[in-house]
């Protein structure tokens, strides 16, 4: 009992530390790094959600961008258009209004509702067929938003207040990580994993597999929705094009590189894969090594990025961490 309260008190304490860091240190970084760090955090939240569906439950979904779009647009709607009482927009501070976390949760819930709607019919499908169905769902959401005049149609929703800051993004990363690790180390979590391992055996062991598949899908959609909300309030603009198929693939790549079913691996991969294309920008600069005219080519960084991916898949085909956590791999010789 005491142990349990201590753990949660530590989590709150960690969030407070993040707040202090956000107020007193984060602004000192230049804008480029700030943006990169925040984007990495948002990718972490999205990838943690997808890891639940694709990694732990083994239901390969390619519709994550669709859920992010729903969450992003819904959160923007709630912070901008919903008639909150005035005090909520300035309490406790105009830059930190209480409406933001509430809207994020509402955005996540709406995305989860969409997950339920899509999940129940499409989770009858397996493997490639499920991937195609969810891919189709993502496109439906995008095309709907292109025609959604109320929120800017193809021009997108502009002037979204920039509420996403270091504190919100990383508190949410922290809480999501704890909640997901807790879930996975519990009986329902083991039920979700058993569906990935052997669906028939799980069913015969008394696990209601349909329920846990839908649950994993729905929770994954919830985290996607929250990530979408954070993204909108970081970029201050949301366009339907932002949430195209490429975004889904990016999140899938993070999960695959990190290791399907490894929370810490996915967090690491989110950082690496967000930073890598940016850090490789130096290769696009003027040729500094005589005789190597390839350097200075603007597309060079994408070639290097792709090569990194290929080598990674050759040398760590199950992702950086496989389906283990980093601390489980630590100290084990070989693997």
């Amino acid at each position: 009992m005491g142990d349990y309260l201590k753990k949660w008190a530590m989590l709150v304490g960690a969030c407070l530390l993040l707040f202090v860091f956000d107020r007193y240190a984060f602004w000192a970084l230049n804008g480029f790094w700030q943006n990169l760090i925040l984007l990495a955090g948002i990718n972490m939240v999205a990838a943690l959600g997808l890891n639940l569906t694709n990694g732990y439950c083994g239901q390969f979904s390619l519709g994550h961008a669709g859920f992010m779009a729903i969450g992003g647009y819904a959160t923007a709607f709630f912070t901008m258009m919903f008639a909150w009482p005035d005090w909520m927009l300035t309490f406790p501070h105009p830059e930190f209004p209480i409406v933001f976390p509430i809207s994020l949760i509402l955005g996540g819930v709406l995305a989860a509702a969409a997950g339920l709607l899509v999940g129940i019919p499409s989770l009858r499908l397996k493997g490639d067929y499920l991937a195609i169905a969810t891919l189709g769902f993502g496109e439906i959401v995008r095309v709907f938003l292109v025609n959604f005049e109320y929120m800017g149609a193809a021009r997108g929703q502009t002037n979204i207040p920039q509420y996403s800051n270091f504190f919100w993004v990383y508190s949410i990363v922290l809480i999501s990580t704890v909640v997901i690790l807790n879930l996975i180390r519990s009986s329902p979590g083991r039920a979700i994993i058993s569906v990935r391992e052997d669906e028939l055996a799980a069913e015969v062991m008394g696990v209601w597999t349909v329920y846990y598949k839908v649950a994993a899908f729905l929770l994954g959609a919830f985290f996607a929705g929250v990530a979408g909300g954070l993204l909108g309030h970081l970029l201050t603009i949301l366009t339907p094009e932002k949430f195209n198929f490429v975004l889904s693939i990016e999140i899938v790549v993070i999960v695959v590189v990190g290791g399907m079913g490894s929370t810490s691996g996915v967090l690491l991969a989110a950082v690496l894969l967000t930073a890598l294309p940016e850090l490789l920008r130096f290769t696009s600069g003027a040729a500094s090594i005589p005789g190597l005219s390839l350097l200075g080519e603007p597309s060079m960084r994408m070639i290097l990025y792709s090569l990194t991916m290929i080598f990674l898949m050759i040398f760590r085909p199950k992702g950086l961490c496989g389906n283990k956590e980093m601390w489980e791999l630590w100290g084990r010789k070989g693997s």
């Binding site: 519990s186 009986s187 008394g206």
Partner: peptide
């Protein structure tokens, strides 16, 4: 343990928090 799941006696909601009942 997976075979004990349906007898586990707590909801998925409880598993998020790892409380005393859990």
């Amino acid at each position: 343990k997976i075979a004990c799941h349906f007898n586990c006696g707590y909801s998925m909601f409880r598993s998020f928090f790892h409380g005393p009942v859990f």
